[in-house]
Structure formats: structure tokens, C-alpha cells
């Protein structure tokens, strides 16, 4: 059912595999946290390539370095050593401001805890990344944000505040925010970690739809069934990639959602 990544390089989304098309290319990535005298080796030399159109699940036990890896991919943190090429550009040598601009233009990040601004409407939350882009007019900001909310099925809730939305809806707003800037990759660290089964399926359904449109997505999950909705699973262990396998028969969230009995308790 699962094939070893090393066995066969599958061209993602049927595209060619030229290196300069690689969205994410990391080599010998090392991250060491120093807490006083104690050194924590969160990443001990990670090599990975992620190609356009891929949908990757990063798996592994708690503490295996998944979040550390994602934060570096998302330019929220910098590696101790190693190189990271994002969309062909070397990230390891960039300044704080340049990293911020990179996050603003090329990356969409989804957190386990949603991380929406409180007392700020769904629409304004989605607009946030565009506010830090001078080239975008207020009108375009609004149009694009509404479109992003539409893509996650929340167009009708655009004026709602986060505390008026369920957990699943909040996460959908967060996904809309992550895709509003047309990123080269959407990174999601345990996006379904705080959600129940049905809502998790809804979130995976959205990710699958976005991936079908060609958007590259990397998610972290420790649940095997969630990973089954992706196309490739990378497993971390002690700060290293232990294995990378293609998913043989990708599950379809929409179909599974349809089979689920309707349950009113799902909305938190």
C-alpha cells in the first residue's frame, strides 16, 4: 500500500521534476536549542525536497522535531545549520525583515490553535496578510479575502468575530488567511489537532480541494487516518526523517464526510 519514497520518485501533480521547480529543498538541516547548559537537538540533519502540487503529511511521535521543522519551513524560525531553498531562493542568509516579507508573499501558515486576532471579524483576519503588502489596494484586499472565505465555505460568516465561530470554522478562517496571499506553499502544524473527527474531515476536505487546484500543502499530524488524506507521508524520529512513503490509495474526505451520520454535537 505504501511505497518507499526512495524506490520511486513520483512526479507530483504530473509535472517534471527539475530541481529549480522544487518548492522546498532542505539539506542537512540542524536545529539545536540551548537552554542553559543543556542542548536539545530538535533536528539532526534533515534532507527533504517538496515539489509543486505535493500534499505531504509529516508524522512522528511528539518531540520528534515536526514543529521545529515546520517553523523553519515557515520562516518563523531559523535553522542552526544547513541550507533551505524556498521556491529557488536561499532563505538561510536572509534578515528578519526579508524573512517577514517572504512569509508575507510566499507562505501560508495554519496553526493548531487557529491563532486568529480576537475581536476582529473573519474578513479582517483574512485580510491581515494583505495589509502588510503595500502593493495591494483596499478594494483588492477585500475582494481577495472574500474569495478566500468562499473557498473555505465561510463567505456568509465574513463579519463574524472568532468567538462567534466554532473551532472548525475558526480553522477554516485561518486556512482562508493562509491562502489569501497566493502562497507557494501552505504549511499547517496539526491543523486538526484541536478538532473532532467530523470537523477534521471538513478541514481535510478543504485541503484536498485546494491541493486539487494545484496548491502545495504540507501538514503535520500524528494521526495516521489524517495522513491518509495526503499524497505522501514523511515520518520523523529523533530529529531525523525516518521514512518517506507515497500514499497508495489516497482517502477522499468528501466521500467519507458524506457517509458520516449527521451529528449536531460536532459544532463546538
Amino acid at each position: 500500500m505504501h511505497r518507499k519514497w526512495a524506490d520511486r520518485r513520483v512526479p507530483a501533480a504530473g509535472e517534471d521534476t527539475d530541481m529549480d521547480k522544487t518548492i522546498i529543498a532542505v539539506k542537512s538541516l540542524v536545529k539545536t536549542y540551548t537552554m542553559g547548559d543543556v542542548e536539545v537537538h530538535a533536528l539532526r540533519g534533515v534532507n527533504a525536497d517538496i515539489l509543486p502540487g505535493e500534499f505531504v503529511a509529516i508524522m512522528g511521535k511528539s518531540g520528534s522535531g515536526k514543529s521545529t521543522f515546520m517553523n523553519i519551513l515557515g520562516c518563523l524560525d531559523v535553522p542552526t545549520r544547513g541550507s533551505y531553498l524556498l521556491d529557488g531562493a536561499d532563505v538561510s542568509s536572509l534578515s528578519k525583515d526579508q524573512l517577514a516579507t517572504l512569509r508575507n508573499r510566499k507562505i501560508g501558515f495554519v496553526f493548531q490553535s487557529f491563532n486568529l486576532l480576537s475581536r476582529t471579524s473573519a474578513l479582517e483576519n483574512v485580510e491581515l496578510p494583505l495589509m502588510y503588502n503595500h502593493k495591494i489596494s483596499s478594494r483588492e484586499m477585500r475582494d481577495r479575502s472574500l474569495k478566500a472565505l468562499e473557498q473555505v465555505g465561510l463567505a456568509s460568516r465574513s463579519s463574524h468575530m472568532p468567538n462567534q465561530l466554532s473551532g472548525g470554522e475558526q480553522q477554516r478562517v485561518a486556512i482562508a488567511r493562509s491562502l489569501v496571499n497566493d502562497p507557494v506553499v501552505i504549511l499547517a502544524d496539526e491543523p486538526t489537532g484541536n478538532l473532532d473527527t467530523r470537523t477534521s474531515l471538513e478541514i481535510m476536505d478543504i485541503f484536498q480541494k485546494l491541493n486539487e487546484k494545484g496548491i502545495t500543502i504540507v501538514i503535520v499530524t500524528h494521526e495516521a487516518d489524517i495522513a491518509g488524506f495526503t499524497k505522501r507521508n514523511i515520518t520523523f524520529r529523533d530529529g531525523r526523517i525516518m521514512r518517506s512513503v507515497m500514499v497508495g490509495n489516497q482517502r477522499n474526505a468528501r466521500e467519507e464526510l458524506a457517509q458520516l451520520p449527521v451529528n449536531v454535537e460536532d459544532e463546538v
Binding site: L128, Y132, N181
Partner: peptide
């Protein structure tokens, strides 16, 4: 602090 983190994660620079 968290709000600052959120803003930075979507691209706010120090000067923003």
C-alpha cells in the same frame, strides 16, 4: 505578545 506573533507570522516586519 501573541497578537504580535500572529501579525509577524503573516508578514509584519519589526517596523510595522
Amino acid at each position: 505578545t501573541r497578537e504580535i506573533g500572529i501579525r509577524m507570522s503573516v508578514g509584519a516586519r519589526g517596523r510595522d
